[in-house]
């Protein structure tokens, strides 16, 4: 079932078109990586989905509710961080959570405590937020986003300020949530962090979606590369094709699909060539992104 559906979303500010016919979908259990350079319209798209900005044209539905007609029902099961987790600095983390929770129907106190443990803030939760580091604020923001047991989670650059351990925890948390059937939209500039756990990629540039595809589809768009270490690459030049390349005396790269690479290795072994290492070179989102966006620098 569609958790989020965006169709033909168009947003103009003055005469400038910020978003031009943006469309994508998120189904239950999907994690969508929303990628684009600065000013491409990522945050604007997110704000339009959340009703923070009015849309000029197009259709957005969350859980099947049109946000123009049934905003309250649509937004009820959405959790979000937009731009940065902006909370009330003069309250403690816990007071912030209680305040946010009080605006939903019946969120039991145990839920709040569980979420605090989940994001790893249990030791500092009663401190004033003004004493928090950026990473701790980010954790608090994630906690707030999870308060209402959302069916759609929208996270705008949630890894900002998180330490590597925090990022790993977040990754595990999001994977777990996706397994429970939550749809997640996540925008981040750190593409390598996203590719390991996203199942969909959506690339936006200048307010237009230039690629929407599943991560596996994108990765198989190109041939598989294998990097192989041998004692001396001079011995093997005769087995290489034009696309393959020699890096140095020990390393060379071949482009083969999975079946032919096995045959290729077998052939080398039979010719008494010692193979020390075979690694599969994956194509990173970064590369795909650079290919698609025409080499535009990513934020």
């Amino acid at each position: 079932m569609n958790i989020l559906k965006v169709e033909n979303l168009t947003k103009k500010i003055g005469s400038k078109t910020i978003l031009n016919k943006v469309g994508f979908e998120i189904n239950e259990g999907e994690i969508l990586a929303f990628i684009g350079p600065n000013g491409a319209g990522k945050t604007t798209t997110i704000k339009c989905i959340l009703g923070l900005q009015k849309i000029n044209d197009g259709y957005i539905s969350i859980n099947g509710y049109d946000i123009k007609k049934d905003f309250i029902k649509a937004i009820e099961y959405v959790g979000c961080i937009v731009e940065s987790p902006d909370v009330y600095m003069y309250l403690s983390g816990y007071e912030n959570l209680k305040l946010q929770a009080s605006l939903y129907k019946n969120i039991p106190k145990e839920n709040i405590d569980n979420i605090v443990n989940l994001v790893g803030l249990d030791k500092r939760i009663h401190d004033k937020v003004s004493k928090y580091s950026l990473g701790m604020k980010q954790r608090l923001g994630i906690a707030i986003a999870l308060l209402n047991s959302p069916k759609l989670l929208i996270l705008d650059e949630p890894t900002n300020g998180l330490d590597p351990e925090g990022i790993k925890e977040l990754r595990d948390l999001l994977k777990k949530l996706a397994k429970e059937g939550i749809g997640i939209l996540i925008s981040s500039h750190n593409l390598s962090e996203l590719e390991s756990f996203c199942n969909k990629v959506c690339i936006i540039q200048n307010g237009k979606i230039i690629e929407e595809n599943s991560i596996n589809n994108i990765k198989t768009l190109k041939e598989n590369k294998y990097k192989i270490k041998v004692s001396n690459t001079k011995k093997i030049t005769k087995y290489l094709t034009k696309e393959d390349q020699i890096i140095d005396d020990n390393y060379f790269i071949v482009i083969k699909d999975e079946d032919s690479i096995a045959e290729f290795i077998k052939k080398l072994v039979l010719k008494d060539i010692l193979i020390y290492e075979v690694t599969k070179e994956t194509i990173s989102l970064e590369e795909i992104y650079i290919n698609k966006a025409g080499g535009n620098k990513i934020d």
Partner: peptide
């Protein structure tokens, strides 16, 4: 942003 994404008009 948090206030306006709560289920209220």
């Amino acid at each position: 942003k948090y206030l306006l994404t709560k289920p209220y008009k």
